[in-house]
Each structure stands twice: as C-alpha cells, then as structure tokens.
Design a protein around this nucleic acid. Structure first.
Length: 566
RNA sequence: GUCUCCGUAGUUCAAUGGAUAGAACGGCGCCCUUCUAAGGCGAAGAUCUAGGUUCAAUUCCUAGCGGGGAUACCA
C-alpha cells in the first residue's frame, strides 16, 4: 500500500520528497489504518510537521486509496479504502527478497564428541535453525555447516576410562542411547581420577599414541566418537537440525600444522626461540596468538584457520560467514577473523561472530563438574511428556497421534522459549515454566494455527487449495472487524526484512505473538462460518487463510510445525 | 586494570531516535447449550543513577552503580 501512496503523492504533492515520507503503525485506538509522519522532512521544507501534514492531507483528499485522513498530533492517520486495503492484505508476500543474490554460510552446533548435547546446545540450535530459515525466507542461499570437535583431551579421558573399566560393554549391551553411554565414561574418568590421581599421567601417552596413529587407540577413538555421533544425530533429527556438510576436526587438524609453517614462510607468522609459532595482533590490541605449540602440535585456532580455505573450496564464494557460538568466545573469534585477514584469506567475505548469552538455570550457571548440566534429551522427554498429558485430556487422539503431536509441541516449547529473548542476553531456563503452555509460548502459536485449520476442515476445503484458488475480491465484503488483523498481516514483509537485516529471529517471535493475538481476538469476536452473509464469510475465510500462511511461514522460520490437531 | 554483553511492571521478556513504553505469568473482575477455553474481554502495575546531544532518548554519547563473560602454547 505504501508504494502506491508514495506514487500518488509524487504526482500530486511533491515529486522529490514523497518517497521520504515515513509510514508507521497506528497505535491501538488512535483511529486510522496507517500513519504518516513528517519528521524527516522538517529540515528540507523548513516547516513543522503540522504544516507539512496538512499539505499532504490536502493532496490526499481525492486520492482513490484513502477514504479520509486525520491529523493526530504530528501524525497524519489514514483511513484506507477497504477494497484497496484488503486487496493489499490478501496479496501480502510471504517470502522476502532483501537478501536475494546473497550466499551465507552458517556454522552452528559444534558438538564435542565426548558427551551428549545439553541445554546450551539447544539455544545454539534454536538460533542456527531459525537464522538459516530466516535468511532463506529473505531470499538468500544458505549453506549449513557443522564442526565436530572430535579430538582432544576430553576424549582421551573417556577413552582411558573405557579402556580401564569398559569390560567391552556397548550401548547395545547396556540398552542406552550411545552418546549417553559414551558420555558416562567421561564422567567415570572424573570419578576414578579423584580416587587415583595417577590416572592423569596416562593421558599424554594416549594423546601421543592416538596422534601417531596407534591402531588400538585409533580404533577405540573411532568406536567412541561413532557412539556419540550416532546419538547426537538422533537428537539432531528430533530437533530438526541438519547440515549441508559436517567437518571433523580430526580430518583436517593435520593440515593446520602445514598451514602454520606456510604462514611462517610467508612472513605472516613469527617464531619464538622455543619453536612455537604465533601471529602478532598487537597492532589490533589483541596481543600475540599462538598457532603452533612449541612441541609442534596444532591448537584449535590453527584448525579454524585451515578450515576456511577448505570450506571455500567446497562451496565457492560466500558473502557472509556466520559462526553461531556462545558469547564467551567473542575474543577468540575476533582473533580468528583478524588472522584470516592478515593471511589474506578473508577476501570479501564478511565474518560474523554470532554470540549468544549463556543459558542459566534458576539455581545458577550450569556446571558440568557439579553435574548441573541439563541434558537435551531428558529435557525434551520432559516437555514431550507434559504435552502428551495435556493432549490426553482432550481425549481425541490415539497413541500414535499423541506421540507425533507431543513431539511437535515439545519442539515448539523450547524453541520459542529460547528465541523469545534477544540473542545477546543470557537466559534463565526455568523448566517448570517451559512446560507451562499458558500465554506467550510456542504451543500458543501452534494452537492459533490449529484453530484456523479446524475452521477450514469444517468448511469442507483445505487451506492449500484455498490459497491456490485465489478469492476474487469482488465476491468479498470486508468490515471494520477485519481491519486490525489485516493491519497486522500488512506488517509481515517489514518484519521479515528487519529480522533478516538484523539477523535476529526474536523479531519474528514478537510479531507472531501479535499476529496470533490479533487472530485470536478476531476469532473470539467474529464468527467466520456463521458470518452474516456469504460475501462476509468468504472474506473472512480469505483473511483466515492469509493469517494461516503468514503464521505457518513465521513458525517455519523458528523451526516450529503446526500440528493437525491439538 | 582493560575489553565486552546486560540493567524496563512483583516475575520473565518486547520496543528500527518518534504518538499514551508493548506482551505474558502472578493477583483482581468477567466470557464455554455459538467455528477447539492450550482461548477471549476488562481494570491495576515499569524505563538503575547523574549529566549531555536532539524539536523528540528505553534507544545515541560521557561518567557512575549493579550483574554476566573474556583477557592461555583451553575451546
């Protein structure tokens, strides 16, 4: 609607300045459907908002789009001609194009292969899933990548414990999820090393043998990482996490060493007397960062640096590389990015550290040592059980439906909870509250969608075909009752654009809540199937279908599905 | 010390420099012989402090106060 208004005003008011007008939402109960403000033009015209407003108001007097207009304070509130308004509503695009032509790589999850996923990963996943879907909805090409941290001291500890006490047990023989099984040996190491501090001394030897390719330790390593990965992948699938490509640290860390020597030869890295190699970032106030230890082994930074060229080779040009990681790694990633720049590897790629705040518990910070880490699978089970209980009360589901739906509701619950707060803020995850589906919640949004679906089922045709056979506006008759919901729908493209530009799914969450509220309020006040006349009924069905499609898209961006029933 | 993120109703969160700061939970009052009450309607309730920039500041700047986090040959 704005483009048509601007076009009209360019012709009938001011050719150069009309496009600078700012449109905004009319606050509740202010009257009007769309507001125009003139703050940006006060200097250019040397007039105050009221003067400009009345000029514009005059120009719009005979505009076919505007029923009437009214100055309220510095704003000109427009009452739009219903036909035009609702045509715009029904034609609101679901997809955006602001990122069209852009290629974005998103790295997320980054599990350690020594234990199961926990609550912290869930925030990472909620953000990773939604960022990727958001960019795609805004027109970008997205590559989802993962880095599996499958080597290191932690894994050596697990191997040691299994080697000493494993007795050949397997996840199958014990009947537990393989990542949990493997993770238990990591816990076991902690326990045993407290009893017997001597154990710790065996670790360097294990690491050395593993790196040297010793068949026994390589075999055990493969067995244990495979267990963890098998379990982690089960969890990924349950959560809707997937990747175009997974990179294993173990597969390319060797390359890091060559990489360090190459850099030294080129003169971008320096060497110390003890043989260690470092990159000088003092000019950027970041000190010196070691890239190769004095004993010649690579560190994680080196692995990260050497991974980038591999990724570029795999995927070609990338406009933006986003790392979704906890914000405590801020400094670390700054050094990675600066190093890539110094190495002249960054090209024109924009590197983004997407840091998110910690997920705390009401009792404080999660600490693996204190056993306060919330396991992802357990949490999801808990949520799914709560959902299943609620569904059972409805009494219209068989066991299979209950399971499928409770999984959908479970995913909606935690994803919503972890996305409704801005990424930069830390979250206190209250398990009790997340199980409570009252009010602002993922299930609330699903419920709104389910109620729309239900209406269409009752009306005897499904939503998809309802969309394809686009309603003819002439057959429809809208009233003021539909306006607030229409206004909300019109905002969608702007919200999508802003969320994509700011790389912030929280904007989508907030919007969907408002949309669902507008829908529920409309639903509560106006009957659709029993509307006063056929034209109004058709109009309301068309509006309901539109609402559904925006809601469905928005929820899909958050990684949330709308169940058939609930 | 330095860097960084954060500070909004009793609580958990929103708010692209613009209208009366939006929700939800909790507490209060309503609404199920009418499309699913996991819902709707109504009333109460908030910007850490002090300066500054601006016609306009929750938002930007400076200084405090309070809380996370980072400052490794860990990741």
């Amino acid at each position: 609607m704005e483009p048509q208004l601007i076009k009209y005003l360019e012709e009938h008011w001011n050719k150069d300045l009309a496009s600078k007008l700012q449109f905004s939402i009319v606050p509740k109960d202010k009257g009007g459907d769309l507001a125009v403000n003139f703050f940006a033009l006060t200097k250019a015209l040397g007039k105050n908002p009221l003067e400009i407003g009345s000029e514009v108001q005059k120009a719009l007097e005979v505009c076919p789009l505007v029923e009437k207009s009214q100055m309220v304070g510095p704003y000109l509130n427009l009452y739009l001609v219903a036909d035009q308004f609702f045509q715009d509503v029904l034609e609101t695009p679901i997809e955006g194009k602001i990122l069209k032509g852009k290629t974005i790589m998103v790295e997320y999850s980054g599990p350690n292969t020594n234990k199961p996923l926990h609550l912290g990963h869930m925030r990472n996943h909620a953000l990773g899933i939604s960022l990727c879907a958001l960019f795609e909805a805004a027109g970008a090409k997205v590559h989802r990548v993962n880095i599996l941290n499958d080597k290191g001291l932690a894994l050596a500890k697990s191997m040691l414990a299994y080697d000493h006490f494993g007795e050949g047990k397997t996840p199958e023989s014990e009947g537990i999820k393989p990542d949990l099984f493997a993770g238990n040996w990591y816990v076991r190491y902690d326990l045993e090393s407290k009893k017997n501090p001597e154990l710790e001394k065996e670790l360097p030897e294990i690491m050395r043998k593993w790196e040297a390719g010793d068949p026994y330790w390589q075999g055990l390593w493969k067995k244990m990482t495979d267990w963890v990965l098998a379990g982690v992948r089960q969890t990924y699938q349950r959560q809707g996490v997937w990747f175009d490509k997974e990179y294993r640290e173990s597969a390319h860390y060797e390359r890091g060493r060559e990489f360090a020597y190459e850099g030294l030869k080129k003169g971008v890295f320096q060497q110390k007397e003890d043989g260690s190699i470092y990159i000088d970032l003092k000019d950027l106030d970041m000190g010196e960062k070691t890239v190769l230890r004095s004993d010649g082994t690579a560190i994680y930074l080196t692995q990260d640096l050497s991974l980038w060229p591999i990724r570029k080779k795999d995927f070609g040009h990338i406009d933006e590389m986003i790392h979704v990681v906890g914000d405590e790694q801020d400094y670390y990633f700054k050094t990675v990015f600066e190093s890539l720049r110094k190495l002249d590897l960054a090209g024109d790629t924009k590197f983004t550290f997407y840091g998110y705040g910690l997920v705390n518990l009401p009792t404080g910070r999660m600490k693996s040592r204190e056993g306060t880490v919330v396991d992802a699978d357990n949490l999801m089970d808990e949520l799914a059980a709560a959902a299943a209980e609620k569904l059972a009360e409805q009494g219209k589901f068989n066991a299979e439906e209950t399971h499928a739906t409770s999984e959908q509701v479970m995913n909606a619950a935690w994803k919503f909870f972890l996305l409704k707060t801005s990424p930069t803020k830390s979250i206190t995850f209250d398990a009790q509250k997340s199980v409570d589906f009252q009010g602002d919640s993922g299930p609330y949004l699903q419920y709104a969608g389910v109620r729309i679906k239900s209406i269409f089922e009752k009306a005897g045709f499904d939503l998809k075909t309802g969309l394809e056979s686009r309603p003819v506006l002439a057959d429809l008759e809208f009233t003021e009752a539909e306006k607030p919901l229409g206004v909300k729908i019109l905002q969608w493209p702007h919200v999508l654009e802003r969320a994509a530009e700011n790389e912030n799914p929280t904007f989508i969450v907030t919007y969907l809540l408002e949309l669902a509220q507008a829908w529920s309020s409309f639903y509560g006040q106006s009957s659709i199937l029993n509307a006063e006349n056929e034209a109004l009924k058709k109009a309301r069905l068309a509006l309901a279908a539109k609402t559904y499609h925006v809601l469905e898209k928005g929820l899909a961006i958050l990684g949330i599905e709308i169940p058939e029933k609930m």
